[in-house]
Design a protein around this nucleic acid. Structure first.
Lengths: 223, 223
DNA sequence: TTGTGCGATCTTACGTCGTATGATTACCTT
DNA sequence: AAGGTAATCATACGACGTAAGATCGCACAA
């Protein structure tokens, strides 16, 4: 056994950081007790002194990511004016955190209960909205609407991750033109103004657009 | 070995139906090769004659659920007038399918590529929208917005599934009133018009409200 | 009738996972 | 030096996905 002077002592924090690193680098399925142990140069069973179970560890992962969101959105930008600008900025920051940890939305949504840190985000959001004249009822709905966007919008609906591979042959394209004309039009460049808006799927722009719709709608519902 | 006359022959369809049944009844983690075999009265390895791997089986699960959505939304209601009513109805139907299979959104979002059946839904949606005067660009955005709602809104953000257990003691409530006053107000009945809008979290109403915001926004963007 | 071929199913086995149990270590206190 | 305690490890078990090959049952040819 390597003496403690040579090796950092274990801790819940160090375990969670290592697990996040594994998930970021190799996907959530690589987060394994034995692999975490390997990364921390200890045996898998040693982790159980700091973590109750694999489930608790996964909950810790979610907590870690949501903590990042809290840290990123704690201080509002100096020049921000109005609730819309504030909330928009926070949602974009939250999304950027999720994009850094693509496994996070799935993990968060798989939990039976929201991690405690989450309430800090909600508190801040409700405060901002109520100050801007929202009813509590409407603020509650805003939480749902915005939360499901940040967690649900990360994944692409089309395209296998990156649009590098031309997954469709000419024949398939021809067949598609007949059976699904609208999707074919959507996928074909130069058929409707901009270039094929299906192949060039700018998810960030889609996100901001949809978020804008929601914020506009909430603003109208405020009255 | 039980002769074939006594026992239905295996098939990909039967395997997928059994797997969906397991997932509905016991959660997605109960969907196991051995358990499916048990349900179909065969050995786990026999499934591989019809299913390439566990991953392919999971993709098949997603396909099955999305197929349910297609079936439910194939025929529009007779009295429906206008794209908004049509799309609203389809989204509600899609959501009702997801609520029957709470594991489905996670499974669908975990896939590297959308199942082929999905395109039928998109084709129908884009057709309806383009007919109503949407540009293809805007229709594309509508797909993203509505899709992420149907898949992302199913899970509760608060509350451990059902609100039966009073998870908070009086002390915790007191502490919360000080550190998170807005959430406390949100959770407290009779403090703001309606009764506590956090404890009585009518997710269906939240969903319909948010969906309404999106549809209104899309309608405005149409011009 | 007796092969014979083949599609469908089963048996066995391997490596990996989470984790229960109990031993073992390193270090502090006296 | 002795003993106690917190931290770490070694071993083991059952469940998982699945590779490789054996085995079954039946249709058809001789």
């Amino acid at each position: 056994m390597i003496p403690a002077t040579v090796r950092q002592p274990l801790s819940r924090e160090r375990i969670l950081v290592a697990a996040v690193g594994l998930a970021d680098a190799y996907g959530i399925s690589a987060v394994t007790m034995r692999r975490i142990g390997e990364a921390l140069d200890c045996e898998a069973m040693s982790l159980y002194y700091y973590v109750e179970s694999k489930g608790a560890l996964v909950a810790g992962l979610a907590e870690q990511v949501i903590g990042e969101v809290v840290a990123a959105t704690a201080a509002d930008p100096p020049g921000a004016t109005g609730w819309r600008e504030l909330v928009l900025g926070r949602c974009l920051l939250a999304r950027s955190v999720m994009l850094r940890h693509p496994w996070a939305p799935q993990v968060i949504m798989s939990l039976p209960e929201a991690p405690t840190v989450t309430y800090a985000i909600y508190e801040q959001l409700v405060g901002t909205l109520v100050d801007a004249g929202f009813t509590y009822e409407l603020a509650h709905r805003a939480i749902h609407a915005l939360g499901s966007m940040v967690l649900g919008f990360t994944q692409e609906l089309f395209e296998p991750a990156d649009g590098s591979a031309p997954t469709m042959t000419v024949d398939q394209m021809q067949a598609m033109t007949e059976t699904m004309p609208h999707l074919a039009a959507l996928a074909t460049p130069d058929i409707h103004g901009t270039e094929g808006s299906l192949s060039t799927c700018d998810t960030q722009a889609e996100f901001e657009f949809t978020l804008g719709l929601l914020l506009d709608g909430l603003d109208r519902a405020r009255a």
